[in-house]
Computed example of a mutant assay.
Amino acid sequence: MHYQIPTHLQAVILDWAGTVVDFGSFAPTRIFVEAFASFGIELSLAEARGPMGLGKWQHIRALCDQPQIAARFGRVPRDADVTAIYERFMPLQIARVGEHSELIPGALEAIAACRAAGLKIGSTSGYPKQVMDRVVALAAEAGYCADHVVAADEVPRGRPTPGQALANVIGLGLDDVAACVKVDDTLPGILEGRSAGMWTVGLRFSGNYLGLDYPAYQTLSHTLRAEQRERIDALFAPAQPHYLIDTLADLPPLIHLINARLALGELPSH
């Protein structure tokens, strides 16, 4: 018995907000602003977006660790402060997540193409299970059902560690992490896939880094889109994604390309 490089992909593991649903990733960011405001702490939408991709408690902790935000508390924010904000965040998020639950244009078609290529569909999210259950139900009503879902609080450690991605490998019964491609719109989500030993694809325009809704995105000129690609590619660079595309609609050609690389003996670590 000896190791054999997989010859084709077996699964694509998709993020949720900013990848499959919620173009611009507005559902979590606006609730962060509201949750902080309920404690008298002003938070801009841009600041709220900063640590996107982490689990939500960890996201709030990362925000509180930023000097300009910590200064608004008048003291160093403690874990108890983070938990208090998180406990305010959770019911707001559960109640309001449906306001930004629309499928991203082209996502269903891309997922159908992946299934036609023989791939299973896994998924991970920075949302805890309480919120994820609501997101999954709304997506199902719109026609999207992943084969496996792993929320941030269903593993001991979430992104950027590989726990959620690896839980999908187990849950989907896959043979090799190198037969998986992780797709995400955030740096922690790409690092999740990288640390799991998977192929990785970053999304430029549908998620957190552009931060526009779909109608606003459509109005961008060719020149502005090119400028934003350059800016966002630089933001993704520390995670070293294997590929960068604009939205999930651009994924199917990459599946064939990665399969060709696997057939030549290439691995994600190469």
Rank of each mutant, 00 (worst) to 15 (best):
P6C: 14
T7Y: 07
H8E: 12
H8T: 14
L9C: 10
Q10F: 12
W16M: 09
V20G: 01
G24L: 14
F36I: 15
S44H: 11
E47P: 07
R49Y: 09
G50K: 14
L54N: 00
H59M: 06
L63H: 11
D65A: 15
Q68L: 14
G74H: 13
V82T: 09
T83W: 04
Y86G: 00
E87V: 03
M90D: 01
P91M: 09
H100C: 07
H100V: 04
E102F: 12
A107C: 09
L108C: 07
E109P: 00
A110S: 03
A110G: 02
A112K: 01
C114K: 11
G118W: 13
G118R: 10
K120D: 00
T124E: 05
T124L: 02
Y127V: 04
Q130L: 11
V135W: 05
A137V: 12
A137H: 13
A139K: 10
E141D: 11
A142H: 14
Y144V: 15
H148W: 15
V150D: 01
D153S: 02
P156H: 07
G158E: 04
P160G: 01
P162G: 04
G163E: 00
A165Y: 01
L166Q: 12
L174P: 01
V177C: 11
A179D: 11
C180W: 11
V181H: 12
K182L: 06
D185N: 02
L187N: 01
L191A: 03
G193A: 06
R194C: 04
R194T: 15
M198D: 06
V201R: 07
L203R: 10
R204A: 09
F205Q: 03
G207Y: 08
Y209G: 00
G211L: 07
D213V: 04
D213H: 02
Y214W: 12
A216G: 04
Y217V: 15
T219M: 13
S221N: 05
H222T: 14
H222Q: 10
A226L: 10
A226M: 08
Q228R: 15
I232R: 01
D233H: 12
A234R: 14
P241V: 02
L244Y: 07
T247R: 11
T247Y: 08
D250E: 13
P253D: 03
L254Y: 08
H256Q: 06
H256R: 13
I258V: 12
A260N: 09
G265T: 11
E266T: 08
E266H: 14
E266F: 15
S269P: 00
S269Y: 06
